[in-house]
Amino acid sequence: MSMLVVVLLCAVGVAGGYGLGRVVDGARSLLAGPESLPADKVAAPEPLDVGGPATTCRADDVELGLSASATTVTEGSPMSFMVRVTNVGRVPCLFDGAAASRAVTITDETGKEKVWSSADCVDGSRPLLLGPEGVDAGEVHWKSVQGCAKKAPAVGAGTYQATASLEDVPGATSEPVTFTVAAKAKPHSDDAKDTGDADDGTASGDAAKSDDKTGDEKVGDDAADAADRDAKDEGDEKAAADEKAATD
């Protein structure tokens, strides 16, 4: 059938004034079919076995995000951090989502000197299976102190950095978040002076009031003594009169 088509095309081409060579080339291109593709373009990509056993997340599979509740906090005041873990891979993977693994570490401004880490204060594990584009978020609280002891010293005023990481996923870390710890406000010297002046005025008023009270008490005592003397004189005069009348 193909040969018959070629013969007919050749006859038509020659009759139409085309050269025999051009007609033969056209027939060959028609019979050759579509251009063949390279083997790597033809092969389909290997399908993902999303139903198979999940593997441990790798650093390339997850993305860590970290945000702070405030950019400035007063010495000794608490603050919190939100840690978000996102699966940016193509298959589900496993990681430890407990607070001991989802660690927030506080360092000095240079990032070299460690001040505090949430991983040092808690323990336990919480295996999580995170699907593609899945997100798991958790909050970490910090009391602006050094270490985990109940009476741990408070950090001093200055600039610090916070970074999130996954203990069981080496290399998985967040971008650092910078924040400031401000010193506590101290009482103003003028306020202290005003308070002292007020205390002095109160003390002076109390002293004057005490003096007034003493004077009033003294006047009262003098009046009582005078009344006693008058009563005594009256008694003496009466006694003398009675004695004279008895003699008469």
Rank of each mutant, 00 (worst) to 15 (best):
H141Y: 03
H141F: 01
A208C: 02
G16Q: 15
R28N: 04
G156M: 00
G111K: 02
P47W: 06
S67T: 10
A44N: 10
V177Y: 14
G13M: 06
G138H: 06
P170N: 09
G220R: 12
L129Y: 08
V88F: 05
V140W: 01
A11Y: 15
C57L: 09
C57R: 03
T163E: 11
T72R: 14
V135Q: 09
L94P: 00
S67H: 08
E46N: 05
S80P: 07
F81H: 05
D199Q: 10
V140L: 05
P78S: 10
P170H: 09
E133R: 12
V7W: 08
L37W: 05
L166M: 14
V145D: 01
V122Q: 03
Y160S: 10
F81M: 04
S67K: 11
A183L: 01
A164T: 04
V140Q: 11
A32N: 05
T110G: 06
A226V: 07
Y18T: 00
A207F: 11
G89Y: 04
D60M: 09
A59K: 13
A198Y: 12
E234Q: 12
L129G: 02
A172K: 06
D211T: 07
G76M: 04
A223R: 12
T107R: 00
D60A: 15
T202C: 06
L64R: 07
A203K: 13
K151T: 15
L66F: 02
L9N: 12
A208L: 13
K232I: 04
K209M: 10
G52E: 07
G76W: 08
L66H: 04
A154L: 03
V62K: 09
A208M: 08
R229Y: 10
T71I: 02
F95I: 00
E113A: 10
V12Q: 13
D120V: 00
R22Y: 04
K143Y: 07
D120K: 00
S165Y: 00
M79I: 00
V6M: 13
K193N: 09
R229F: 09
D120H: 00
D222M: 10
K112Y: 08
K143P: 13
W116D: 05
G89P: 05
G124K: 05
A157L: 02
A207H: 04
D216I: 01
